[in-house]
Computed example of a mutant assay.
Amino acid sequence: MKKDSELKWSDLKKSLQKSDKKELLNVIQELYKYSEDNRRYLLVRFIDKKEINKVMEEYREIVVNEFFPKKGYGELRYFVAENAIKEYSEASGDFVGKMELMLTYVENGVKYTNEYGDIDEEFYDKIYDMLDQFCALLKTPEGKSFYPYFRERLLKIRDDSDEIAWGFGDAIDILITKIENFFEEVQKDS
């Protein structure tokens, strides 16, 4: 038998193709039971699209929890929050849901620094980078139609970050002003 490191998807795929439906369902059930991450992924991937908002709220909770858990202080494990956004997006294909989670990350980052004071450079970089990615998505053909939906929240982020030091407030202001100008130009052109 090959070592685990030598096994490839093609090897597994051959075995899975030989399995019957019941056997595959049993494997999926075991994966579902194995971890909370697996459960969320499978639910997002296969749940009826009418139920997707309920699952997205679970992912939003993961993001918010890194900043403001129900008890104690946020751990600021960026990778946990960022992975939740990535996992939700890849499993669901829900474009606006991904944007919703990204903006939730930024809103909670701004709220966190206003609540607890100056953080560190990595913190500000992570929050800014997520907002920058969000704005890039807004500029895409698929994202443009969602600008009116997110506009007020963007303006609130700009207002709430106004007094934040280390150039963060200024950087946020510039980024949101650029997106405002972009959409003013789009409106003029249409």
Rank of each mutant, 00 (worst) to 15 (best):
M1N: 07
K2Q: 12
S5G: 06
S5H: 11
L7D: 03
D11L: 04
D11C: 01
K13F: 14
S15P: 00
S15L: 15
L16I: 15
K18T: 10
S19Q: 10
K21T: 15
K22A: 13
L24Y: 05
L25T: 03
N26E: 14
N26M: 09
N26G: 12
N26K: 12
V27E: 12
I28D: 03
I28A: 14
Q29C: 09
Y32V: 13
Y34E: 15
E36L: 10
N38F: 15
R39A: 09
R39Y: 11
R40G: 05
Y41N: 10
Y41I: 15
L42F: 10
L43T: 04
V44Y: 03
R45K: 13
R45W: 00
F46T: 13
K49W: 10
K54R: 13
E58S: 02
Y59G: 05
Y59I: 06
R60I: 03
V63C: 00
V64Y: 07
V64E: 07
E66A: 01
E66R: 04
F67P: 02
F68H: 08
F68M: 08
K71S: 14
K71C: 09
G72S: 07
G72T: 08
Y73Q: 12
V80W: 01
V80N: 05
A81P: 08
A84P: 04
I85R: 02
I85K: 02
I85T: 08
Y88Q: 04
Y88I: 04
E90D: 14
S92N: 07
G93E: 11
D94A: 04
D94R: 05
F95I: 02
V96K: 13
G97H: 13
G97N: 10
K98L: 06
E100K: 05
E100D: 15
L101E: 02
M102W: 10
M102K: 11
E107D: 07
G109Q: 03
G109N: 03
V110G: 00
V110D: 00
V110K: 01
Y112W: 07
Y112S: 06
Y112N: 06
Y112R: 08
E115L: 11
Y116K: 14
G117Y: 02
G117Q: 04
D118C: 09
E122I: 11
E122F: 09
F123I: 05
D125M: 14
K126T: 03
Y128V: 01
D129F: 04
M130T: 14
M130P: 00
L131V: 02
Q133N: 12
Q133Y: 06
A136N: 10
L138V: 01
L138P: 02
L138M: 08
L138E: 00
K139V: 00
T140V: 06
T140M: 02
E142W: 03
G143I: 03
Y147D: 00
Y147M: 00
F150L: 06
F150I: 05
R151E: 15
R151K: 15
R153I: 01
R153D: 10
L155Y: 07
K156P: 00
D162K: 14
E163L: 12
I164L: 02
W166C: 05
W166L: 09
F168H: 04
F168G: 01
D170G: 14
A171M: 06
I172N: 01
I174T: 11
L175M: 09
K178V: 14
E180M: 13
N181P: 01
N181G: 07
F182E: 04
F183H: 06
E184Q: 12
E184R: 11
D189P: 00
S190F: 13
